[in-house]
Design a protein around this nucleic acid. Structure first.
Length: 425
DNA sequence: TCTGGGGTCCTAGGACCC
DNA sequence: TCTGGGGTCCTAGGACCC
């Protein structure tokens, strides 16, 4: 059996864990730039605020009533780690799927006692971290997702719902579940399934897997098997490094200044380089992209991207800056107001296992050594003394590209100074 | 004035080869 | 004038996830 543990309204729950006064109030957490609502408390959902609703389009009455906070990813990341530490007490097989969801394998456990085990798990997470979670228990990941949904929806389950592969309950549930609410089926696929007369999860389960594969893809075929109770989806091995690294941001306000674009691309390249070194990979290409705002109807629109190959696999921020800068110069056009740009590192190879061919090697041994020591020092200083302690000639704050986040709460769990500020204030 | 960010996987189709 | 067939590799873009 597999359990899916999913935190209730995770970002909101993190905020509440440190500010009990938020309990019972309509609370929302905003995306970067305070753009959209990306997490909602039960009370805010009840007010009719949709997931992803733009802040500036919310009715004034709701804006007055609700507590809307900027996102505080340092806090959420740390809380996520704590939740997973508790989960590890209940099974050696914990796969973190996203910041607020983890799958837990229970191979070898006594299946009769699993529900009680999951109730203890849920109580312990809540007691130790303050985060409420729901648990779905089933033979496959897709069914565990469905079970998790039920656990949260129907209070009778008290947060833990178990679904068997073949039972009257499972059939009853799947017959009433629109197919687009399944994990892995969204609008596009839903529309095409509807043309085949498949509207519910149960109808998809009954469909011929071969036919589904031919009409769609192996992805959807696997879903059919999972619905029938045959595991067909493996999660990525967590030890696997990322295959690409992306850093992108919207601008605080639209800008057509080449200097703004250059500074932002540099900043994103610097963050991407840190991520790259943290996971111990080297990049062989850099992609740069930019775009205007699709929401500005009537304004001229432009979007473009370019891939710049690197002379050899590298982790050196200076190489990445240089390539990103060339990429930007190639696609930048005057006369547009840009909304967003980003830098992606591609073609990553493992630092330890790399095989440098003579052709790929563009630096001498000594140069490479110096570069690695320099980058390690930069990363260490930034880690220990705070982000941006050491930068590569970047300008300061207050640019068009600086983020807006006016409503952020303190980083309680990772910044002593901010914790103190709360207590004194 | 203001509409998020970071990923993965898969497929179609082009280029190229024999 | 006729104008194959099959294979591989790569990339762009679609679809989806949280």
């Amino acid at each position: 059996m597999i359990a899916l543990v999913d935190c209730d309204n995770f970002y909101v729950s993190c905020e509440r864990a440190f500010a009990p006064r938020l309990e019972g109030l309509p609370v929302g957490v905003l995306s970067n730039n305070d753009g959209c609502v990306v997490a909602r408390s039960r009370e805010l959902k009840a007010l009719g605020v949709a997931m992803g609703a733009p802040l500036h389009l919310l009715p004034p009455a709701i804006r007055r009533q609700a507590v809307l906070l900027s996102s505080n990813y340092a806090l959420y990341g740390d809380m996520s780690r704590r939740v997973n530490q508790v989960l590890a007490e209940f099974s050696p097989d914990v796969e973190m799927y996203s910041i607020d969801e983890s799958f837990i394998g229970f191979a070898g456990f006594d299946t009769a006692g699993l529900e009680a085990h999951c109730h203890r798990l849920r109580d312990t997470v809540c007691r130790w971290t303050g985060i409420p979670v729901g648990v779905g228990l089933a033979p496959t990941r897709v069914l565990a997702k469905v079970a998790n949904h039920l656990a949260k929806q129907q209070s009778a389950y008290e947060g833990v719902c178990r679904l068997e592969a073949d039972s009257a309950v499972t059939r009853h549930v799947l017959e009433r579940l629109p197919v687009v609410e399944l994990w892995g089926v969204a609008r596009r696929t839903g529309e095409r399934l509807a043309l085949m007369g498949i509207d519910t999860a149960w109808q998809l389960r009954q469909a011929d897997p071969g036919r589904i594969r031919r009409a769609f893809s192996v992805v959807l075929e696997r879903l059919v098997w999972e619905l029938r109770g045959h595991p067909a989806i493996d999660l990525d091995d967590l030890a696997e490094p990322r295959r690409c690294i992306l850093v992108s941001r919207s601008f605080g306000r639209l800008t057509g200044e080449p200097g703004d674009l250059q500074a932002a691309v540099r900043q994103h390249a610097a963050r991407a380089a840190e991520k790259l070194r943290r996971q111990g990979s080297l990049a062989r290409a850099v992609q740069v992209f930019l775009r205007t705002s699709p929401f500005q109807v009537g304004e001229p629109q432009y979007r473009n991207s370019v891939v710049v190959p690197l002379a050899g696999p590298t982790t050196d921020s200076r190489d990445l800056f240089e390539a990103a800068g060339r990429g930007l110069a190639a696609i930048f056009r005057d006369g547009y107001r840009y909304q967003k740009c980003g830098v992606m590192l591609l073609d990553l190879v493992d630092d330890r296992a790399r095989q440098l061919s003579l052709l790929e090697e563009s630096r001498s041994e000594a140069e490479r050594d110096r570069s690695q020591r320099l980058m390690a020092t930069v990363d260490r200083l930034n880690r220990e003394m705070g982000r941006d302690t050491v930068r590569f000639g970047l300008p300061g704050k207050d640019n068009a590209w600086a983020l807006r986040c006016e409503r952020r709460t303190s980083r309680y769990t990772t910044r002593w100074d901010e914790l103190m500020r709360v207590k004194i204030g």
